[in-house]
């Protein structure tokens, strides 16, 4: 059960790569592991670490203050590919609560919503300027207000976004979707009965 999501103010890290697929967010070999704190190490593993296990200094999320970021500003088609929800677990374990991108892989988008990782779609130009600003002013913060559907950047500009209403409602109130659906059990049973 994810915690309720209302507003978040956090350091934003720019990830200037398009088509970041879920195999890159968490390589398959880690997926056999149960969900625990080690997922923080698995996130972007092969981009973050050399085969010998040393942190690559050139990878943005290894550099302070970006290693403390709570918001990731990505690019086109983030989370494309496999349905592995472990990609969301890894991002959460790394400390992210929000990913901003031009577009998202379809299944990743819903996996994120169901786990309290807010996927925010903003236009290409906005993503680019947010990434640029974050890169030029390391440590600058963004505020994401889910109740108002607004991202506010470090210069005070507001960027509106939309989230599907049911998922937004569940996030704002920290509701459990399965529990909500089970209140519709009579309708499910009626559907089954009607089909025989």
């Amino acid at each position: 059960m994810p915690d309720a999501f209302t507003t978040l103010t956090a350091v934003a890290a720019p990830l200037d790569m398009s088509n970041v697929d879920t195999d890159q967010i968490i390589p398959a070999r880690f997926m056999r592991r149960p969900r625990d704190e080690r997922y923080a190490q698995y996130g972007f593993h092969d981009l973050r670490f050399t085969p010998e296990g040393a942190a690559r200094p050139d990878f943005v999320l290894n550099r302070p203050p970006f290693d403390q970021a709570g918001i990731l500003i990505a690019s086109r088609n983030f989370g494309v590919g496999s349905s592995r929800e472990a990609a969301v677990y890894a991002l959460l374990a790394m400390g992210f609560r929000c990913v901003i991108a031009e577009s998202f892989g379809d299944i990743f988008f819903s996996n994120a919503l169901k786990n309290g990782l807010l996927p925010v779609r903003l236009p290409e130009d906005t993503c680019r300027s947010l990434r640029q600003h974050a890169a030029e002013h390391p440590g600058s913060r963004l505020t994401v207000d889910l109740a108002a559907n607004i991202v506010t950047d470090a210069e005070g500009n507001a960027h509106a976004f939309t989230i599907p209403p049911f998922a937004r409602d569940c996030l704002l109130r920290g509701l459990d979707e399965i529990g909500m659906t089970l209140t519709l059990l009579p309708a499910i049973e009626a559907f089954e009965a009607a089909r025989g």
Partner: peptide, 20 residues
């Protein structure tokens, strides 16, 4: 269509899925 683990749990528990 393919779904994530939370959705699999939802299907197991309810035999339904929310979709737009």
């Amino acid at each position: 269509f393919g779904i994530g683990a939370s959705e699999v749990a939802h299907v197991l528990a309810t035999q339904t899925i929310w979709q737009s």
